[in-house]
Design a protein around this nucleic acid. Structure first.
Length: 916
RNA sequence: GGGCGCGUAGCUCAGCGGUAGAGCACUGCCUUGACAUGGCAGGAGUCACUGGUUCGAUCCCAGUCGUGCCCA
């Protein structure tokens, strides 16, 4: 074995073997356990969030697979309508072609071409992470069978009147020319203005002032509203105003929706271009005047002067014209929320169009109940609240998109405008009883990408067919996801699952936090602070990193700043940490429901942990090769101790993983392997190999191998590669029959051996006492010390005898005869282990002053604790009220402190006498 | 404005009624036949603040301040 762990040498090799041998496929025998991979966008690249999420899912998957469950981790990709269409359109634009030049059919073809060439990069990257997904059943939302599921759901919902077509205001993206759902709109706070405009009264009695943040929409005003309780405006009720620049007359109406405090208290009403105004318009039967084209330029229903102008151009001209006409009262700075399309970034317009909607209330009700009655459990629990909040306010879902890439809506229009929905044209015709000679035209629109994603938990398993996979793996056990898509995806899967499968799509939803950079900032391309997980595995130089993060920026002027920050945060790029270190770091950071600052220090430490494990394995193999190893009935206290500690660790790890506390599980493994197995057990084994009997050596060899092998299996879900590599080398000496650690049983916790734990704890305390003396008195670690014991109990004497070899071997000490109780100990430095005095001969070693100082410090510490105990026990309210066990424990503590205080005081007195 | 979090060692975070923990960083000693990606020892915290409940509060409750996110 290499002297240090080299991850790149083994990772690729093992993954290839696992995949080729079909280890990722679920077995036939176990009880089902399934997880759906949230399908990444086909345009996507693996970012830190994916890597984190994939690690969590892979840990759960491997954990259950090792327990013999029929474990399915279902992979696949999402066609990502808008994102993908944009990518391919951009590519065409580079060739000077627009999608309209080549037409719908050719365009969709070129999307498929793009997909087969450059799509799905992310699945290659998932392999680098060790993700053990069932690649044989990889799915894509645009696959034929998944599309069939989409059509069926649409048709059924339509014929149940749960899907309808309606004309109403939608969020319109004027750059992409498509409708968006509420969720695809992100509002940002921006600095704008509040324009106060004078609307002249028709009766000639002056004017009233309305305030608006969007003056261009005045072209579509059809009323001005005041609050009926506003005392300032009672004389306005029912009068007419002249709408400036248009020559139209509009009424003043009253509506209690109007906020008396805001602006002038008079609100212009534009039903076609504002959601609230639209509702108010409906209440008052106002006309709806749309003044925009679908690219947000002013249309022909507006006065001629503004026609064809872009909305922001029109705004400038309108403001100028109003000022020229003396109708601009004032302009104030104003902070407002501006809606943007989440893909294009364009300012979204409320826009009146015909769209398809899902009637959500009947679907939401059972979905709310499923969480209320515990059929679905959120982890952490507080996400229930977020879910309920949203589900109770949920509105109908706009599912049509004016795109070409996606599932085409299975609706056909007859010349008379009637709508016919079916699996295909023939079916639609038949359902409506239409003759073949009536021409039908299919709806041009496609469905929202999330419509197909909502079906993912059953469409990937074969639905609408009744397949064995569907039967076996639905409902899935857990959904692992970020809170950001609870509404986009989680809620909709629950609704669709309940509707079409009659059962929840998953029993639990584990919601993890967001990965942020070291400063707590969200990672984003525009900030140039994204880390590529693959770079953390392979390492990347500073120069490459700068090149990568500063190229292709939307805002190239940010490049120098980004470069500066990279140089600060990663002065040497990053080293090659390897996949296992990265995964272990993610696991260790996966604390409940909290965002994660990704800290390079952690991954560095975990890389070192890999190396530690590697070298422990080297030691074990070195000490056991050339020997026949087998389990022995008689083993030493140290052997029994490490096995007992391991059982405790295994039990804890199992419990933590079951509770989704991968951080605690990782910490437990780290502690056990490093601080107990390596720091203590390996060291304790060394004297055995030097001086122990053949039986003792044999027992130690077996224990070394056995504990390492079990630890590897416990660690495997988090660190699949290094554990496999080492495990393969342990197979032969342990006589294990098996091809891969992946399919070995996950260890089960056994009994605790309290006696062995007590024994070794004693040994550790004695050795620590000696080490402390050594360090504090500056005695070199190599020097063999003369040590003797005094006082103590019969058990101490027995242990001293039993562990003599270990004490002298590990502690580098020379054990002398037990001192009589009254012997003079002034020549010694002392450590106390309960009743026992551990005495290190000071002859020629140190200054007595140093020893006095050391003892003084220890005494001081004991006194502080002693006083605390005394105070507590002196408080009768504590003694009377606290549980007896707590009081008893406090008494024991007090006794222990007293013992030590007495011991240190006596020793100090002796030394002081000597100095006088 | 409403909702959900979070303020614990220099940093990143566990703990959440019975004497404060880890990793990294820091200090000292050590190239000892697994590992310097290491060993041993050590220093370091009025657990944001103020009240309350309790024999006892970092932990529970209320409020304040700071901070983050989501929804209006």
């Amino acid at each position: 074995m290499e002297k240090s762990y080299q991850p790149d040498a083994i990772e690729g090799r093992w993954y290839k073997q696992w995949e080729e041998k079909g280890y990722f496929s679920p077995n036939q025998t176990g009880q089902p356990y399934s997880i759906m991979l949230p399908p990444p966008n086909v345009t996507g690249n693996l970012h830190m969030g994916h890597a984190f999420q994939d690690t969590i899912m892979d840990v759960l998957t491997r954990f259950h697979r090792m327990q013999g469950d029929s474990t399915l981790w279902q992979p696949g990709m999402d066609h990502a309508g808008i994102a993908t269409q944009m990518v391919v359109e951009r590519q065409l634009a580079n060739e000077g072609v627009s999608r309209h030049d080549i037409g719908r059919e050719k365009f969709v073809e070129s999307v498929w071409d793009w997909k087969s060439e450059s799509g799905g990069q992310i699945e290659k990257q998932m392999r680098r992470l060790g993700a053990s997904v069932d690649w044989e059943h990889d799915r894509f939302t645009m696959d034929e069978d998944l599309s069939r599921a989409v059509t069926k759901v649409f048709v059924e919902l339509y014929h149940e009147n749960l899907i309808y077509r309606g004309k109403r205001l939608v969020n319109w993206d004027p750059v992409l020319h498509t409708a968006l759902s509420d969720l695809e709109v992100v509002s940002t706070e921006e600095n704008g203005h509040l324009w106060h405009i004078r609307y002249p009264r028709v009766d000639g009695k002056g004017y009233i002032v309305v305030a608006t943040t969007r003056p261009e929409t005045m072209l579509g005003d059809t009323a001005v509203a005041v609050n009926p309780d506003d005392p300032r405006y009672t004389d306005l009720h029912g009068i007419e105003l002249e709408l400036p620049l248009t020559g139209r007359r509009i009424p003043v109406i009253t509506d209690s929706y109007v906020d008396i405090e805001f602006g002038s208290g008079c609100v212009k009403i534009t039903p076609a271009h504002d959601f609230n105004d639209y509702e108010m318009g409906k209440r008052h039967q106002l006309p709806v005047i749309n003044v925009l084209n679908d690219d947000a330029s002013i249309n022909d229903d507006a006065p001629e002067a503004y026609r064809g102008l872009d909305r922001f151009e029109a705004r400038k001209k309108i403001v100028a014209d109003l000022e020229a006409a003396g109708l601009m009262e004032k302009i104030e700075p104003h902070v407002l929320m501006v809606p943007h399309g989440d893909r294009s970034g364009a300012v979204v317009e409320p826009y009146l169009t015909d769209q398809w909607y899902v009637k959500i209330a009947p679907l939401a009700k059972p979905a709310i109940e499923a969480v209320e009655n515990g059929d679905i459990r959120f982890v952490p629990e507080n996400y229930n609240k977020t879910y309920f909040d949203w589900m109770h306010r949920i509105e109908d879902w706009c599912i049509s998109r004016q795109l070409w890439w996606g599932h085409r809506i299975p609706a056909w229009y007859a010349p008379d405008g009637s709508i016919h929905v079916g699996y295909d044209e023939a079916d639609a015709r038949q359902r409506s009883g239409l003759d073949d000679d009536i021409p039908l035209r299919q709806d041009e629109d496609v469905l929202d990408t999330w419509f197909s994603s909502a079906l993912w938990p059953f469409s990937t398993l074969g639905w609408p067919d009744k397949t064995p996979r569907l039967d076996k793996y639905y409902p899935t056990n857990v959904l692992v996801t970020g809170f950001d898509i609870i509404f986009f995806w989680v809620a909709r899967m629950i609704m669709m699952g309940l509707k079409f499968m009659g059962d929840v799509p998953f029993r639990e939803v584990y919601v993890h936090g967001l990965i942020r950079d070291a400063h707590g900032q969200k990672m984003s391309k525009s900030k140039g602070n994204v880390l590529d997980p693959i770079d953390l595995i392979d390492g990347i130089s500073l120069e490459e990193m700068i090149e990568k993060l500063t190229s292709g920026l939307m805002q190239p002027h940010m490049a120098p700043l980004i470069e500066k920050n990279i140089r600060l945060d990663f002065p040497e790029g990053t080293s090659a940490f390897g996949c296992d270190a990265l995964r272990f770091t993610f696991a260790a950071l996966a604390t409940n429901g909290r965002d994660i600052r990704f800290d390079l220090g952690r991954i560095d430490g975990n890389r070192n942990f890999c190396n530690k494990l590697w070298n422990a394995a080297r030691y074990v193999l070195m000490s056991t090769s050339d020997h026949e190893v087998h389990a022995v009935p008689q083993s030493s206290a140290a052997d029994r101790w490490i096995i007992s500690r391991m059982h405790k660790m295994i039990g804890d790890v199992r419990a933590h993983i079951n509770e989704y506390r991968l951080d605690l599980a990782a910490q437990r493994l780290y502690e056990f392997i490093w601080n107990e197995y390596c720091d203590w057990y390996l060291e304790l084994s060394k004297p055995v190999f030097q001086k122990g009997s053949a039986d003792e050596q044999n027992a130690a060899r077996y224990t070394l191998l056995h504990v390492l092998e079990c630890s590897l299996r416990t660690l495997h879900p988090m660190m699949p590669f290094i554990t496999e590599e080492i495990w393969q080398r342990l197979k032969a000496p342990l006589g294990i029959d098996g091809e891969t650690i992946m399919l070995q049983p996950f260890p089960v916790a056994g009994d605790i051996d309290q006696q062995a734990e007590d024994d070794i704890e004693w040994l550790q305390k004695v050795l620590q006492g000696v080490r402390n003396i050594r360090a504090e008195l500056n005695v070199s670690p190599g020097k063999v010390l003369d040590v003797t014991f005094q006082a103590g109990t019969a058990t101490d004497r027995e242990r001293q005898k039993r562990f003599a070899t270990l004490l002298s071997g590990v502690g580098k000490i020379n054990m002398n005869q037990w001192l009589e109780a009254d012997a003079d100990t002034s020549e010694y430095s002392v450590a106390l282990v309960a009743d026992l005095k551990v005495l290190v001969s000071l002859k020629g070693l140190v200054d007595l002053e140093d020893e006095l100082a050391r003892l003084g410090k220890l005494l001081e510490r004991e006194l502080t604790d002693l006083k605390k105990s005394e105070a507590k026990l002196g408080n009768s309210r504590f003694v009377d009220n606290a549980p007896p066990a707590v009081v008893e424990k406090e008494h024991q503590r007090l006794a222990a402190h007293n013992q030590k205080v007495d011991g240190f005081r006596a020793q100090i007195k002796k030394l002081e006498k000597l100095l006088d």
